[in-house]
Computed example of a mutant assay.
Amino acid sequence: MDALRGRSVLVTGGSRGLGLLLARQCKARGCAVTVAARDGDELDRAVGLLGRGTPGAVTGRVCDVRDAEAVRTLVAGTAREQGGLDVVLANAGVIQVGPAEAAGPDAFRDAMETMFFGALHTSLAALPYLRDGEGRGRLALIGSVGGLIPVPHLVPYSCAKSAVAALAEGLRTEHAALGVSVTEVHPGLMRTGSHLRAEFAGDARREYGWFATLAGLPLLSMDAERAAERIVAAVERRRPRLVLTPAARLGARAHGLAPVLVSRADAGVARLLPDAPANGADGHRRRTGAEIDAGRGRWQRALSALNERAAGRFNETAGQGARSTR
């Protein structure tokens, strides 16, 4: 844990969910941490949560990572206030669930702008500072197993995360000789409570039902605090790549060895999921999980109980109309 002690850290998408837990792990290591997110009220709550119990300073900064100039201002201000910048964790994201046809082009555009271009803007703004740091900088881009294996009814998300994976690998090869480590992180399902912030298209209620249930099952999903600890440890050790959860590792390996077979299995899964509605553009309307949640049945709530508790602990429940950042 001494490798990061006293370092300056920036976490985008750091106001809740995985980003909040990454910031907490860095703060526990004695880092000066800046968390960035779009929603100022949510950010204030996050800073309050992070300010309890462990050493290290925490600063909140409002920033939309889709805006390259705003990201440059964020990075420069963080480096100025903290005497440099040593570690950057690019975590900001959105989750859209539903058939690609129902999601429509705006969902793909939103996913790419937030997750891919957000990671790109953050990386390009931060790399000059990371190269100049006396401790040799560390950059981590949070991808997903969905970027390694295209997932039915998560196609916008998978497209953006696959681009993040390519970006991380490309930046790692270009900066290996410059002293900057780049870690690509591909989590599987984690119990962060993000089902309440995800957006659902098509038959939104049924889409929400399967997603919220699977995201909270212990055998398929991972404890988010454990995931955050492993991610920060990987960044400390300058690991090039981390895939989290046994199911995600198995799926990624299977896809690498037999992509056609995995694609056929995915097609079988897709047949079990809700069909796209036949109402044209009206099907592109997206609803958040929080809007849908009130009508869930008792058995569905029981299956996702761990995820429901995580939502309350990781700042996912207040202001549920806001966008998802995992």
Rank of each mutant, 00 (worst) to 15 (best):
P240R: 08
P240L: 10
L242R: 09
A228I: 10
A258S: 12
I231A: 13
T245A: 15
D266P: 00
L244R: 10
A248N: 09
R226N: 05
A267S: 12
A258V: 15
E229P: 02
R241D: 15
V232S: 05
G251R: 02
G280H: 05
A276Q: 01
A234V: 13
P240W: 15
P277T: 07
L273V: 00
D282Q: 12
R249Q: 11
V262H: 13
L273D: 00
E236P: 14
L261C: 13
N279T: 11
G280L: 03
R241H: 08
I231S: 06
R238K: 15
P259E: 02
E236W: 09
A228E: 14
G283I: 01
A247W: 13
E229N: 02
R271S: 01
V235F: 02
L257R: 15
H255A: 07
V260R: 04
P277H: 11
A258Q: 13
R249W: 13
V232P: 14
R239S: 09
A252R: 05
A270K: 00
A252G: 05
G283T: 03
V262M: 10
D275C: 05
A248M: 11
G268F: 00
L242E: 04
G280Y: 05
A258E: 14
E229K: 09
L261K: 12
A267F: 01
L244F: 14
D266E: 03
P246F: 10
A265S: 13
A281C: 09
R253M: 14
V232T: 09
P277A: 02
R238M: 13
P274H: 00
A233S: 06
V260L: 11
A228T: 14
V243S: 04
P259I: 01
A281K: 09
V260Y: 01
V269I: 15
V262S: 07
V243P: 04
A265F: 11
A265L: 14
D275N: 11
A234M: 07
V260C: 01
S263C: 04
A234D: 15
L257M: 09
A252W: 04
T245P: 12
A252C: 04
A233W: 08
P274D: 00
V235R: 06
L261G: 08
A254L: 15
A278P: 12
A265W: 07
A252S: 07
A227G: 11
V269W: 05
A276E: 04
H284S: 10
T245V: 12
S263P: 03
V262D: 10
R264S: 06
D266M: 01
P274Q: 00
V235E: 02
V262C: 13
R264Y: 03
G256F: 01
V260I: 02
A247C: 12
G283N: 03
